[in-house]
Design a protein around this nucleic acid. Sequence first.
DNA 1: ATAATTATTGCTATCGTTTGCATTTGCGAC
DNA 2: GTCGCAAATGCAAACGATAGCAATAATTAT
Lengths: 159, 159
Amino acid sequence: MSCESFFIEQLQKKGFRLTPQREIVLSILHQMDSPASVEELFAKVQEVSNAVDISTVYRTLDLLQDFNLVISIDLGENHRVFKLVGAEEPHLHLVCVRCDTVIGVDIHPAESFAATLMEKNGFQADLTRLNIPGLCKNCRGQKTRSITVNTLNQPAPLG
Amino acid sequence: MSCESFFIEQLQKKGFRLTPQREIVLSILHQMDSPASVEELFAKVQEVSNAVDISTVYRTLDLLQDFNLVISIDLGENHRVFKLVGAEEPHLHLVCVRCDTVIGVDIHPAESFAATLMEKNGFQADLTRLNIPGLCKNCRGQKTRSITVNTLNQPAPLG
DNA sequence: ATAATTATTGCTATCGTTTGCATTTGCGAC
DNA sequence: GTCGCAAATGCAAACGATAGCAATAATTAT
């Protein structure tokens, strides 16, 4: 697969090595159909070989992120998930703060917004790393929220 | 100050208590002129009273976030900073991935973009929690980047 | 003012992630 | 193939952040 061949190519270019551990982690990422936590990924890696250490999984994920083959998404509450993006068009991610679903969407609607930021602030936004928090279609429909959450969502003070 | 009075009001409303520790943390946040890490905040808190535990600082920051008086910004690399926003208009944050500077900007240019997301994806974006990664004016000018970083920033593979 | 109630604290243990280091192993040179 | 070197690994220790819990202290009722 070309995702693997790109990985191998990148490794060789940098003088890094192709190891069984790295192949396993990449293949597991391929199997996932939604972004997965380290815990999930490590569990699946261990099904293949229980000799692989979790620190190697972390290190491989870092490497894949450097290669832009994987992105990580912060779900808040110290919850982070990883997603293989190598084969896809660049896109941004809508992250539901309620159910943690991640939706990849076309990057183009954001480009005029990015242009405004550049014009007004001289800031060059990196839309491929942009994760947008909010409520997905499903969760938006569900209005039953706990009292605690409701009362906390009040307007900010004035001074 | 009205930020403090809002805090006290919110505490009373929920049956929570105003403690010296909470007052200290809030006053330290007031002193900071840029977003600060827990490490920095805790150091300053200890200058006031070294009896305050770091877990209390964490808990107070959580509480202030629930009250929408404080926001936290993920700088990546497991680096998180906190910023007092109680007195400000809601705005979004431009986060420089190079120097970690955080710039607060007006939320309005993002609203048409948010409208597009709602229309196309049924997703209700929360712009007040939106942090946009990219390069700030200063860092955009500096083209001298390490070879490692340059070679890593290559287009994604096709398949 | 005093007592009762219960939120909050500091301490400790724990969890998830990272780092240091000796050992292993991939990979190029021979 | 074998050798040599440096990258990568597994292990264990360290680190930042969190949770449990007994002791403390802020608020309410008396």
